[in-house]
Design a binder for these strands. Structure first.
Lengths: 124, 124
DNA sequence: CGGAATCCTAAGTGATACTG
DNA sequence: CAGTATCACTTAGGATTCCG
């Protein structure tokens, strides 16, 4: 019996698209990926991520901690020191982020070219 | 000759993290992934993506068209018909999106578990 | 039907001040 | 240092209305 499904490659796209909402936020992936470099302290991480406000980093880290993606370790020193590190789960997701980031990196020139062509085409 | 680089696995995380900003938006990936099912018309795509407003779908599609990720074909019928389809570049990125979406799908239960544990732990 | 225009709310940022 | 809190401002996004 022959299947009606024409392409076995795209599975259920809508379901997948729906799951993407989960990480479809501006800072989750950049934060996780930045932590791949090793455990980091708050402001250190803030610089690594780049462009994130202190408030958003706090929120993002709380959320990631809640989901078991990062651990938060407080060293009772003066001044206090807080270290954030990836869990196995977080590292696993960060790896996906790397793959995605590298895709962008590899195709940025092409995309920029398309963009320029589009812009100059629509203005003329 | 041996390299000084200790870990070849995480490359330059900050640079990668920075590139992620490019697609770090709520709708780009879900829209691309939804289009993996084949060319679709506007409202059809709107339903497939799910939860997106008309305005945001319009904006997202314009942006994707500009970047050469999707093509926009207008059929001069009454009422007008507009079809959106992935380019090779768009399909390539959508595949990355699928990988990410499937990761979430595969780990959702674990994440939900972590979340519940965290919540019940912090309230007690 | 596809989408532009308008209005309006919520989310996010920068800056600053304050606490442990 | 690592936050929390607040305010003014800008941006993202939803809802609604209207048009070809």
């Amino acid at each position: 019996m022959h299947m009606t499904a024409p392409e076995p490659t795209h599975h259920d796209c809508s379901a997948i698209a729906h799951h993407l909402a989960w990480i479809g936020d501006r800072w989750t992936l950049p934060t996780l990926v930045s932590l791949l470099g090793g455990a980091m302290r708050f402001n250190q991480l803030r610089r690594a991520v780049g462009g994130i406000s202190q408030q958003m980093l706090t929120r993002t880290l709380r959320s990631l901690e809640r989901d078991g993606m990062v651990t938060r370790t407080v060293h009772p020193t003066v001044p206090p020191q807080v270290e954030y590190a990836l869990t196995a789960l977080g590292r696993s997701l960060a790896d996906q982020g790397i793959a995605l980031g590298r895709w962008v990196q590899a195709h940025r020139a092409e995309i920029d070219g398309n963009r320029d062509a589009f812009d100059s085409g629509s203005s003329r």
